[in-house]
Amino acid sequence: MSSITLTQEQVSLYHKQGYIIVKSFCTKPEIEKLYTTAINDNAMRNNALDLNDQSGKKTKLSLWFTPGNDVFGYLTRSEKMVAAVQLLLGNDAKVCHYHSKLMQKEPKVGGAWEWHQDYGYWYKNQFMFPDQLISVMVALTPANKENGCLQVIKDSHKIGRVNHGFAGEQVGADMQMVNNALKTMELVYAELEPGDALFFHSNLLHRSEANLSDHPRWSIISCYSLQSNLAYNETSTAWKTPVDVIPDEAILHWDAASLSNADFLKKENDPALKETGWEQEVNQ
C-alpha cells in the first residue's frame, strides 16, 4: 500500500483554492536518486528545450510523454502519485499520464516563466475538460523566493480559461485578467523543500521569477488527465493510456533504465508554440 494518503480536508482544499502542498511526498533517499539521475543521465541534457522569457533569459526543460521503466517513470507510475491524482480529480475514469517534464533553472541564468495557466497551453491540444487535468510538481532542490519558486494566485482556477498569447517563446496569459486576479485574490509563493509536492489545477494562474540566486532550482512536473477527457489535437497516445501503476518501492529498489528510451518532445512539434490566430487577442 502507498504510504501517502490524502485526507478529505486536502481534497476539499484543492477544489477550494486550486492547489495543495503535500510535505515530504517523496523521501530524502528518493529525491537523492531522482536528482542524481537528472544530473547524470545524458538523455536529459540532449533533449532539453530552451525557452526564452520576455527578457531573453532561458529556462531549460526536458519533456516526455510515456512513463517508462526509468526512475522518473517509476515516480509518475507510483501508487502514491496515481492514488493522489485519482482522489483529486474525483472521477471513476482511469488516470492517464499526459507528460512529465524536468525543469532546470540554473543559478543566475535560469529564466522566468510568465503568468499562465497550464490549460492555456493545453487548449491548443484541444483537451475538452480542464477539470480532468492536473499537474504535480515535486521539488528536487529547495524552491524559495530567492531562486524563483512558483507563485500561484489562490482560487484563480475558478476564473476559467483566460486568453493566452506569446510572451517571448512562452505562452502567457492576458495581463489584464492576471492583474484583475491579483487585485481580487491572494498571491502565494509556493516555497518547497526537496520532496514536497505541489498539486495544482490546470486553470490555476501561476508564474515563477528568474533564478538570480547562487543555487539551482530543479523540479519534476508530471501532468495527468483522466481517460474520459478527450484531446483532438494531440499526437501522443499517453494521454489516453491508463497508467500502469507500480508499488512506491520501485523508485528506490527496482532496476531503472536510462531515459534515453523516452519519447521526448521536440520543440518544433509542440502545438502550444505555434500560431493559431487567437493569440493576437490578448494584452501582454
Rank of each mutant, 00 (worst) to 15 (best):
N46H: 14
L102I: 04
S202Q: 10
K274L: 08
N52C: 14
N125P: 03
G172A: 13
P107Y: 14
L226E: 08
Y35I: 01
E268V: 14
S228A: 11
E79V: 00
L192F: 03
M177N: 12
S3R: 08
D155K: 01
K94D: 06
L75V: 02
Y121S: 06
G68K: 10
S225N: 13
H253L: 07
D41Q: 01
L259A: 08
L61T: 11
S78G: 09
H116A: 11
L187W: 06
V162Q: 04
T37S: 10
K105C: 06
E275C: 10
L204I: 10
K145S: 09
M175D: 07
Q284Y: 13
L204Q: 00
D263Q: 04
K154C: 07
W278I: 12
I4Y: 00
L75N: 00
I21K: 01
H157I: 04
V188G: 06
S228M: 03
A173M: 04
V243D: 01
T276A: 05
S228Q: 13
L102A: 02
E209S: 09
K23Y: 01
K60I: 00
E186G: 14
A167C: 13
L133A: 13
G165V: 07
N163V: 08
L204N: 07
K108P: 13
S24C: 12
F166Q: 09
Y74L: 00
V22T: 07
M128R: 14
D131Q: 05
P271F: 09
Q280C: 09
M185C: 06
K154W: 12
A210Y: 11
I134H: 10
K33T: 08
M137N: 08
L88M: 15
Q54F: 12
N147D: 15
S236W: 09
I246W: 04
L87V: 03
L205R: 06
L34C: 00
W218L: 01
V188H: 07
T66S: 13
K266N: 13
Q86I: 08
I153C: 07
K33F: 01
N52Q: 15
S100T: 12
V85Y: 01
R217K: 02
F127R: 12
H201F: 04
V243P: 10
S100A: 01
N144Y: 03
I4A: 03
A210S: 15
G56C: 06
I251T: 02
N180L: 09
V11F: 05
K101Q: 10
D41H: 08
T66C: 13
K94C: 06
N42D: 12
G18S: 06
E191M: 08
L205I: 04
E193A: 05
E9W: 05
N229R: 11
Y98T: 15
H164T: 15
F166C: 13
N125T: 07
T235S: 09
A48N: 09
Y35F: 14
G110D: 10
L182P: 12
N229G: 05
I153E: 00
N283A: 13
T237E: 11
I221R: 01
P216K: 07
D155P: 05
G56W: 03
I4Q: 03
L13E: 09
L226N: 14
S258N: 13
